[in-house]
Nucleic acid binder design. Structure first.
Lengths: 157, 157
DNA sequence: GTCAATACCATTGACGCCCATGATTACCCA
DNA sequence: TGGGTAATCATGGGCGTCAATGGTATTGAC
């Protein structure tokens, strides 16, 4: 189906293992690497997650920046240098590294939050708070999104 | 047929299951995912419903925003993070999650309200009230909709 | 040898699938 | 045109399966 949707809260066991939601695994199942890519968010206290395909798209996009520009440098450090490939075990669980859990404040459970093309991993309470804030903002200032026209069924010539 | 039209009130059984109206299922039948996508409206006490194709359009549209922009963040949280994929069973029923029912105040029955490309799910009494309000507004201030010219029917040569 | 990572197994609880029933609608044929 | 019949749809309940979770064993690295 291709999108990461919904939010799932799963438990982290004593070893630091956590089940990746089955629907997320299904989304990633088309990919060669059987696991997720995770890096620490530089905007929130959470972990960014995605598939390898999205990493490659990021890499392609980053090429639009100058090869040796400071922006490109920073982006690489923030994302590519920090990204870990977390393969899941036969039961669909990944092992969350220590520093990653610490960055998000995760202890005994975590929330997988779908963001469409990507997803995030939060400490459940932190996410609840962040979401409430966003909803409050949305009520005050209703967000809009200009819908792109439906993709034509026949390809352009 | 391709559009969600009319309003249907169906019962919610003890397990939280409810039949998706047959005509809505027919509209969605062309899609790969056999079910609906539902997320809590951030403007009304109701549930927004659509097909996976509409979600993908939203995702495409959101990509026009910057990958790391705050707007993209908020919108994703409100929609993608809250969207649930509700597959229907062989009888055409979906299982309404607890918090979703709570958000709309749904208990023993719910109204499927066609909105064209999408639809909404309401607690029947709440919808009756909301509809009355909308009609009252329309009387006071007649809405307009500039019609787009009919799309040419000839296929591309 | 110790520790950590990973594979293997076992449990349970939610959810999906199956069958049955009733009611309404659409259809067919006299 | 009316009656009868078949099909579709909404609804209710029982049961099996799979995902999530916890624990144990095995393997490999330092």
């Amino acid at each position: 189906m291709g999108l990461f949707l919904s939010t799932f809260v799963n438990k982290v066991d004593r070893k630091g293992r956590v089940s990746v939601p089955a629907s997320f695994r299904a989304t990633l199942s088309v990919q060669p690497f059987q696991g997720i890519i995770a890096y620490r968010s530089f905007a929130h206290a959470c972990i960014e997650g995605c598939g390898m395909d999205f990493m490659e798209r990021l890499s392609d996009s980053a090429q639009n920046l100058d090869a040796f520009s400071p922006e490109q440098d920073d982006l690489s450090a923030l994302i590519f240098a920090d990204a870990r490939q977390l393969a899941w075990d036969p039961e669909g669980r990944i092992l969350l590294p220590e520093d990653v859990m610490a960055h998000a404040g995760i202890t005994e459970s975590c929330a997988f939050v779908g963001k469409g093309q990507t997803f995030q991993i939060w400490e459940p309470e932190s996410y609840r708070a962040a979401e409430a804030e966003i909803r409050a903002r949305a009520l005050a200032n209703r967000p809009t999104l200009p819908l792109r026209p439906k993709a034509p069924s026949q390809e352009p010539r």
